[in-house]
């Protein structure tokens, strides 16, 4: 099988990138240090390993939720982080910080998930009113919609003097990831794995409401479940590392062009590619202005926008 071979290739590639990631950073580490230097092991355990895992999980989870969202909305140019879900999560975190500063991290998460869900439902309601003959209108409306929620977040933050947080949430970075500060992301990883069990259902929903009902499935229920999954994953990602743009958009597009839309087959590849792209972007951000760092959100903003433009202007694959 062609795809299984690619799984292995992808996994091996990801492993190699991860090893690079473990040894790139301000404090010099080399493989031989690990054998006798306790300090080196400590750096690895507290900073490098968590950071690498955070990039892998966030990238994979965002790519998977982008895939799912593209099926739910039936449009290839949307993703949670540019269509309001991520901004909705940021709004939720802001609300918690303002009104319940003492709330536990789980309360924070729950509220962020709810606001992200409300924002995504709002987007879906708008999209349902758009004509199916104008597919590019959907991402356009999504970008503006996300921008409006983002502006609302900035407005509130200005009034409450919380601007320094805003730049953290609205532009993702892994520089703050340490042991004990990223573990919530494992929940996002769990969410991404759970969506895999519903891969067939999401693929069917991507074929439209008629076929979904005809195959005996409850369309609205699957859409709602999908949105909840996307919102939870986005909320977890935004809370821990901030908005990671474009991964959810470009990775599913590229994988779909190469291997099709059968999610049960392609989702693992989507996850691996998303993890690889995010990790590579983070490594670029770490070395390009060594010893300072460029946030992964900025690096991905450049890479993602260029690939997005290419996707927009490539020859249409079907008439």
């Amino acid at each position: 099988m062609r795809v299984t071979a690619w799984y292995w290739a992808g996994l091996i590639g990801l492993a190699l990138i991860s090893i690079c990631s473990l040894f790139v950073g301000v404090i010099d580490l080399s493989a031989s240090d690990l054998l006798h230097d306790k300090e080196a092991l400590r750096v690895l355990g507290i900073s490098r390993f968590p950071r690498t895992m955070a990039a892998i999980i966030a990238g994979a989870a965002m790519a998977v939720s982008g895939s799912v969202m593209q099926m739910l909305v039936r449009n290839r140019f949307v993703e949670p982080m540019t269509a309001g879900t991520g901004q909705g999560a940021a709004l939720g975190i802001l609300i918690v910080t303002l009104f319940f500063p003492a709330a536990s991290i789980f309360v924070k998460m729950a509220i962020a998930t709810v606001t992200a869900l409300v924002a995504s439902l709002g987007f879906l309601v708008i999209v349902r009113r758009l004509p199916p003959t104008q597919p590019l209108l959907v991402p356009l409306v999504g970008l503006i919609y996300g921008g409006i929620i983002g502006a609302a977040v900035v407005f509130v933050a200005y009034q409450a003097d919380l601007l320094q947080y805003i730049s953290v949430w609205l532009n993702g970075a892994f520089s703050g990831v340490l042991r004990g500060r990223y573990e919530l992301l494992w929940l996002a990883a769990g969410g991404a794995v759970l969506t895999y069990f519903a891969a067939d259902q999401f693929a069917i929903v991507g074929m439209g409401q008629t076929i979904t009902t005809s195959l005996g499935l409850d369309y609205k229920q699957i859409v709602l479940v999908g949105l909840i999954a996307i919102s939870a994953i986005s909320a977890l990602t935004v809370t821990t590392v901030g908005i990671i743009p474009f991964v959810g958009l470009i990775v599913p597009n590229i994988v779909s062009r190469l291997f099709g839309d059968n999610l049960r087959r392609t989702l693992p590849l989507v996850a691996i590619t998303g993890a690889g792209l995010t990790l590579v972007s983070d490594i670029i951000g770490r070395i390009v202005r060594y010893p300072f760092e460029v946030p992964v959100g900025t690096v991905l903003g450049v890479i993602g926008a260029v690939v997005f433009l290419w996707l927009l202007f490539r020859k249409p694959q079907y008439a």
Binding site: F77, L140, L143, V302, A305, F308, L309, L312
Partner: peptide
């Protein structure tokens, strides 16, 4: 065209 403009802006 609009979408391209917006993405260029983001870039």
């Amino acid at each position: 065209m609009i979408l391209t403009g917006i993405v260029f802006g983001a870039l």
